[in-house]
Every structure is written in structure tokens, then in C-alpha cells.
Design a protein around this nucleic acid. Structure first.
Lengths: 203, 203
DNA sequence: ATAATACTAAACTGATTTGTTCATTTTGAG
DNA sequence: CTCAAAATGAACAAATCAGTTTAGTATTAT
């Protein structure tokens, strides 16, 4: 069996679900949008749910590959280290937000439409979040940050927040704002810098 | 006509849509869940879309009332000022995340399920975001922050990110992480404090 | 009490949902 | 070429979708 047809099905479904949403995309509409018969779809996948889970698996792989590659490329110019790669995450996001097909995060969409934590589709989004966290945490540790676990979670909060803001506000500044916030966080937690001003008193 | 029935309809619909999602909630299911006949619903609202817009209007009012009230109450103990109120936003969020019925942000859900910027439902979420921004901006200015517009947007990015993280990761730490990030931001931009360490070099 | 208003349940559109069936055609490898 | 696997379109099922209609029951003000 040639693998190309099934992969093409998942790839094109990814695009359609991303643009229209999961519940809003019926199987007849999907079939016509991807130029494939419904019979073929159900030949490859038992249910719509199964297809969506595979779509999310592909998006997990594609998004992580793209993000980490882009973070590396943008972050290692001018002898940039792990810190610059972390900050480059927000430059990569900015590129994404500017893309004509940007329509929010597929995983936020999925966890919003299938919010039951026991649902397989929701589980897939949790898995994606965990995979992202592992990679970011490694960079944060390489960048010699205090409280690496917390800083990692904070960076991911900034990432999700930027995506949400970009979707609802159509504000291109979301990525830039998040990046500057991340800079502050990294500065404050950099072990190679003097302990910065504290909350309770002025310098 | 007594207004209570219509208000009750919108209030109960708000709960059901929040729990199940918009597309996933059919009108028959909605009618049975809120204990009201479908005929009555369509007597009050021409379409499902109209109902959802009103539901979002109510949620906008309720959420903002709750959040600002909670920020004020939590932020003004111990002679707290605008800065403490801003930080209290994340304590309020933490309370929300712990609530048994927490199921993410209804506006993020709405803008995700109706992502067309021209759609009335999407417009309602944009309006909500703008109203939030106005109030936060006023507090940021009162707190004597440098770059108040940017700091405001950053705080809102942290808010949305915390909500998203809390939904997908079920991590209660999301609010705490976001609060500490906000503290760093407010410290760095406080005009009454010495200019902190910068990005490009260690102090 | 009367009459208007609000509500109800239930049946009913016509379209759409997920998923199946079937007869036919396309495709690819030996 | 041959043959089996894979894909197709179209019809089909049963359920559900948004929304309407109908006929009848409460409520409420005059």
C-alpha cells in the first residue's frame, strides 16, 4: 500500500480543520474540500475522531519541527546561544501570525472544542504541550536560568497568550509584546546577572 | 412582559455553552438542559446566533464585574495600590481555575469556533477584549508604568496564556507563574525604580 | 370574567450529521 | 496484459441540526 494517499488525506484535513474548526467541518464538506471521496476517508479511518487524532499528531510533529528549526536558525545568528533561541521563539511566532492562513493554534482549538480531559482528542493536545515543555526546558537549563521549571512554564504561557491575542485582537504586536516580556523574565532569572530589583522595595 | 424569563434563558444558556461549546450544543439539547421549550427560546431570539451574541454580552458584563471587583478586593488589602490590583488579577484567575466549573474562557472558545473576524460572534469577543484593555490600561497608568500600552498588552497576554495553560495542562500553577511574570514586568517598568539590568549586557 | 400575552409539548420541515453499502473504475506491481 | 488492491460516486441509513407550526395551557392586567 502506498503511504502517500493517507498522508495526503491527513495533511489536507489538517488545513481544513484549522480553517473551519472541528465540529463545523462535516465529513461531506471535508471530502469535497480535500478532493477525496468520503468512502476513501472511512477506508483509512474508522471515525472522524480517529482522523482528528491523526491530524493532531501530524500538527504536533510539523509545528514542533518548524518552531525548533526556526528558533535555531533565528537564534544562532551572531553567535546566539540558548537564550537567543528562546527569544527567537517569539520572532517565529510573529512570522506565523503574519501568514495569511494563520487561524490560531489547532491545539487550543481542539482542547476548546473537546474539553473533556478524558477525550482522546484532548489527550493529544496535552501530549503536545508536554513535548513542547521538554524541549523548552532543556534550552532554559542550558541558558543557566534560576527556577528553570517556572521560567519554562512562563515562556509557554507567553506563547499561548500571544497566539490567543493574535487571534482575537488581530494585533501583530502580540508576538513583540510577548518577546519583550520574555526578555524581562530571562534577564531577571539569569544566574550570570546581578540579582535584580525586588518586588517589595525600590532598589 | 417580565424580563426574568429572558434573562434566565441567557444565563442558563451561558452555562451550557461554556460547558459543551457552541457548535456542540444543539438547540434541542439546550432547551432540555435549561428546562425551557424550544418555542420559547425562538420566541425570544430569532436565531441561535443572536442568542450566542447575547450570551457573550452577559458574560462580558459578568466577567468584567467579577474580575475588577476581585482585583479591587484582593489588591487593596494592606494599603495596596494600582500595582497590587494588577497583580491581584492573577490571584482572581487562580480562584477561577480552581472552580469546579472552570472550562476555559468563553471568548477564546467563541473566537476559536467563529474565527471569521466579520462574524458578529467574533466581533463580540473583540469588543470584550477592548473593554478589558481600557480598564487595565487605566490601572497601569495609575501605577506609573513606563510604556503603559505595551505593559497592558503584556498583562493581557499573560492572562490569556494562563487561561489556556490552565485549560490544556490542568496546571493550577498557571496563574501563579503568570503572576510572577507580571511582577517582573511591573518591576522593570516602574518609573519609581532604578532602570534595571538590560538585555545586551550584565549590569 | 375577559382578553391579551407568555409559555408549553410535540410534530414537522428540509438540510445536514456521521457512517455504511455497493457497483464501478482507476491504479500499480508482477 | 492480468489481477488484486484501492479509489470512486451515489445512494442509503438513522440521528441530529436549526428553525417553524400548531394546538393548547398558564399567567396577568384590566
Amino acid at each position: 500500500m502506498r503511504p502517500s494517499k493517507r498522508e495526503e488525506l491527513v495533511e489536507k484535513s489538517l488545513f481544513v480543520f484549522d480553517q473551519l474548526g472541528f465540529h463545523a467541518t462535516g465529513m461531506d464538506l471535508l471530502a469535497s474540500k480535500i478532493g477525496m471521496s468520503k468512502t476513501s476517508i472511512y477506508n483509512h479511518f474508522r471515525t472522524k475522531e480517529d482522523l482528528i487524532v491523526d491530524v493532531l499528531r501530524l500538527q504536533d510533529e510539523q509545528f514542533r519541527n518548524w518552531l525548533f528549526r526556526r528558533m535555531y536558525d533565528l537564534g544562532t545568528v551572531n553567535q546566539g546561544g540558548p537564550r537567543e533561541q528562546l527569544l527567537a521563539m517569539f520572532d517565529a511566532l510573529a512570522e506565523w501570525f503574519e501568514h495569511e492562513n494563520f487561524n490560531g493554534c489547532l491545539f487550543l482549538k481542539a482542547s476548546s472544542e473537546y474539553s473533556d480531559p478524558a477525550h482522546p482528542i484532548h489527550c493529544q493536545t496535552v501530549e503536545h504541550a508536554e513535548m513542547l515543555e521538554i524541549h523548552i526546558l532543556a534550552l532554559v537549563k542550558k541558558a543557566s536560568m534560576r527556577l528553570p521549571d517556572m521560567v519554562t512554564r512562563q515562556l509557554l504561557v507567553l506563547k499561548d497568550g500571544a497566539i490567543s491575542s493574535a487571534l482575537v485582537g488581530h494585533t501583530k504586536s502580540a508576538a513583540k509584546d510577548a518577546k519583550y516580556a520574555a526578555q524581562c523574565l530571562l534577564d531577571v532569572h539569569d544566574t550570570s546577572k546581578r540579582k535584580p530589583v525586588q518586588t517589595s522595595f525600590s532598589f
